[in-house]
Design a protein around this nucleic acid. Sequence first.
DNA 1: CTGAAAGCGCTTACAG
DNA 2: CTGAAAGCGCTTACAG
Lengths: 336, 336
Amino acid sequence: MPTTIKDIAKYLGISPGTVSRALQRSARVSKETIQKVEEAAKKLKYRPNITAQRLVSGRTHNIGVILSKDIREYTSVQLFNSIILNGILEVAEAHNYNLNFAIDSQGKKQGALFRILQNHDVDGVLIINVVSEDIIATLRTSGIPVVLIDNHFDNHSEFAVNNDDRYGAYIATKHLITLGYPSVGMMGITEEAFHRECLSGYMQALTEYGLRVEPYFIQKGTGSMESTYELTRKMIKNNHLPKAFFVVTDEMAIGVIRGLIDSGLSVPQDVAVVGMDDIPLLDYVDPPLTTVRIYIAEMGRTAVGMLLDLIRGQYHGKNQIAIQPKLVIRKTCGAK
Amino acid sequence: MPTTIKDIAKYLGISPGTVSRALQRSARVSKETIQKVEEAAKKLKYRPNITAQRLVSGRTHNIGVILSKDIREYTSVQLFNSIILNGILEVAEAHNYNLNFAIDSQGKKQGALFRILQNHDVDGVLIINVVSEDIIATLRTSGIPVVLIDNHFDNHSEFAVNNDDRYGAYIATKHLITLGYPSVGMMGITEEAFHRECLSGYMQALTEYGLRVEPYFIQKGTGSMESTYELTRKMIKNNHLPKAFFVVTDEMAIGVIRGLIDSGLSVPQDVAVVGMDDIPLLDYVDPPLTTVRIYIAEMGRTAVGMLLDLIRGQYHGKNQIAIQPKLVIRKTCGAK
DNA sequence: CTGAAAGCGCTTACAG
DNA sequence: CTGAAAGCGCTTACAG
């Protein structure tokens, strides 16, 4: 049996209430009492029972973290998520908050997600990646503060932290254009909101430098390496290819490069490629991939800060925060 | 204010105790009462207050997960950990357990780790990777069940789940030997227990096939790519190199390969290499790395199962469980 | 089968 | 500055 506040009270011959106040170093308790209590607490190895504290305070000191199913797969999406998690962990830990994880099992009305949402078990919720809309709706009715991370959500009334995809697409495309490639294509993705952002940045660069928009040069993969591999092969077969590609994820960019190489073309000599994410080992893939580095841990950190303020009812910033990415030049863009 | 058990009681004109029992579908409550209560609960949107349940049950339904500092760095260690986490999450979720994370901030006596350990906030603890010994000692005195994962801990009285490193080293070395390489070196690591395991498997293969042991061919890196890069360059400079290497991690294996290539040697023609881990993108590094695949998510799953049994006081298996890895053949071993 | 009561460990008005 | 008491939301012997 762990020591309780009562044990300390009995030990010192004072009341439990006073012990509690002393432990909180309340100004309404004498210095001597505080000291006596602290000594006794140490001696008796007292540790507060958080559960009891939670019950009376109504605060759980838990943050729910909802991940999309994807994280279970062994892909770079997973790594991406795990880095966001690190950022979250860092800040949450500093503020004495615990994290409760749950997977969005798409509609399955049970499991940890359900528990977290409905059982008063969290003070706020962080949602990573795409999660079904009805979960967000459920959350909204529950009144629990929610912050979306990397969620490419259209509704601007949600609190969200994202990579500035538009800007990322813009700098990548611009980089390729200023390198002198006469035509730049974009390999986008079937995820609509995300695609739209990238497209907007891509178009801005094209317009700014007076390049013609060739609709065929804008394709959409599903997110997998295979999808862009096939798309690339198809374009090659049709003999209609830009001199450079901005691809919206590194994994898809590797698919493009493989498609090119397997058709006997070389990168960047025949076609240049720039990806986005900056997943690990890119220095060692062949050829090393130039990409747009997303500051994912920073996204996590920012989101927790926002959520904590929201929980305390003192967030006054913008609903949507976009973190600026940065170009990382390696070999596939052809820059010397 | 959320609905409580009292609200339901008042609404139905029965006592809170009966409501509680009905909600648990106790056999000692009439079928009609159970039905009435369930309907009322639904109608009033009742959700149990987990905190209160915890206070009375004494069970937190939380599992503490302690990670080493490493996870904050953007390396494959991190990915490795994140995959273990997936395995953990999967099983914990299925059993309605939450996860509480903490970073081992090496001796810093505060933060989430401290909270988790001392505040009755978890029913059991999972420790991933190397954690300082005194934390394990603290845990042991607390009486909370602990399972180590990927911890390469010497003390066989601890509960632990690990990769079978000895076996991994054995199959890798054996593979290289049967491919016909006359000498096989091992690039080990400064982490002692881990190194010893690998060495034992490596030696077993050498002995079994009657290969001579050349002490200079057994080196130790720190874990980083750079460390093995330098070691390899040094061996080349000394003009004393085996025809093949088993390297205990993929990241270090890539360091070896870079060292070889930067010295004008080719892989696997001049020197073959086999790594261990099977981190992502290995198909696309140059040349694609043959490796020993570790089933890391499985390690996580196994560990949670063990911990849950331990918590319930009904674990009767072995203290140490080793998960068997598998050889994944790509290009660097030179197998056709 | 059901109710009244005590209790889990803590906090916090309310008196004094 | 301190004590006695009520209460957070639930569970569970104990009676009946």
